[in-house]
């Protein structure tokens, strides 16, 4: 399997400086991504799951390489492998350079709040045209023509092009944003909660669009969602995050059929199943405050079966079955 992205030992979070914090929080650090390593392959849909505040969006931003204060990367490396066979080190390339050569051509990003990411005073077609002009050196006329063809190819009605963003429904806007991200045929698309603001019908449409485009373009899509149901439907592999760490990675089917980490087991158990009338039991307790995460295993305070080791030492990811990794002392021998 050909890799598209490799992330090694990422440590990053929010440094709350004087500008962003009140006196009591002065200089504190939110440890939102801790020791995350990850490999993404060409031609797959990869999911990142986990409850709200566990650091999914932060991880995505670090992978994309566009860090704005107060987000800082303390340690770690991210490599991107393009279809032309080039290796790009995202973590050691300047923001300006990334803007010029990498973003949108090789990697694109769909932010979490993508309902409001289109310029309210610009027509949809100009959003496509500006990217085409920037990355493909097209003239305005060429770009409009190309945008028309492209939108039809993506299965959107042609008249969205002449509309202003506020005239479109939420689902349509989300599909425009996704089309925009796919426009330059990048190797990797990072989609942060692409469906969470939508109703069920629109969720279906957006997910279908993502899956179909992936099938025809053979690229890699990362879908971040707190909804395990979505991962079950579209992703090939999935990573489970808890309190800033990846606690389990594996094939989606394997994770659903044979979850290893106690947190994953709880997540899967909580899923509603057809014909099952039993009360779904959730986890008790709340995730830790990432400003001062617990020592040892971060899941320990909520874990139904922790040992003495869990209190002192932080576990690491180990490969239990081929391609199935888990971070839990239960599985280390």
């Amino acid at each position: 399997m050909e890799p598209v992205l490799k992330a090694v030992n990422l440590k990053g979070g929010y440094l709350l400086g004087s500008l962003y914090a009140s006196a009591s929080q002065q200089g504190s650090y939110v440890d939102a991504v801790s020791d995350v390593s990850l490999e993404l392959f060409r031609n797959e849909i990869f999911g990142i799951a986990g409850e709200s505040g566990c650091g999914k969006s932060t991880l995505i931003k670090i992978l994309y390489g566009y860090l704005e204060p107060p987000l800082v990367l303390k340690d770690g490396l991210v490599y991107l492998y393009t279809k032309e066979g080039k290796e790009i080190s995202i973590t050691s390339t300047s923001k300006e350079q990334l803007k010029k050569d990498v973003f949108w051509r090789h990697i694109s990003y769909i932010p979490q709040s993508s309902m409001n990411v289109l310029n309210p005073t610009m027509r949809v077609r100009d959003h496509f045209a500006e990217m085409l002009k920037l990355h493909a050196n097209m003239s305005k006329e060429e770009a409009y023509k190309e945008a028309g063809k492209y939108v039809e190819y993506m299965g959107l009605p042609r008249d969205v092009l002449a509309a202003f963003p506020h005239q479109l429904s939420g689902g349509m806007r989300q599909r425009v944003v996704i089309s925009l991200a796919l426009l330059m045929r990048p190797d990797l698309i990072l989609a942060d909660e692409p469906t969470s603001a939508l109703d069920v019908i629109n969720q279906q449409a957006v997910l279908t669009m993502l899956r179909d485009s992936q099938e025809s373009l053979k690229n890699t899509i990362v879908i971040v969602s707190h909804d395990m149901g979505i991962h079950g439907v579209v992703t090939h592999r999935v990573a489970i995050m808890y309190a800033g760490r990846i606690v389990e990675i594996g094939k989606t089917e394997e994770i659903f059929e044979d979850p290893l980490h106690p947190y994953t087991q709880a997540l899967i158990k909580a899923l509603p199943r057809l014909g099952d009338k039993a009360q779904r039991e959730g986890l008790s307790g709340r995730p830790p405050d990432l400003k001062s995460p617990p020592l040892g295993c971060r899941f320990r305070p909520r874990c139904p079966s922790y040992g003495s080791q869990c209190k002192e030492e932080t576990p690491t990811l180990i490969e239990v079955k081929p391609g199935h990794y888990v971070e839990c002392w239960q599985y280390s021998t």
Partner: peptide, 29 residues
């Protein structure tokens, strides 16, 4: 600080262009 301006930068659009088409255009209203 609006999402659309920040996303324009995320997409790699040059600063001058963002200033003109995104910032100036939207404060005009």
């Amino acid at each position: 600080s609006e999402d659309y301006t920040r996303y324009a930068e995320f997409r790699g659009l040059p600063g001058k262009y963002v200033l003109r088409r995104y910032v100036l255009r939207n404060i005009l209203v």
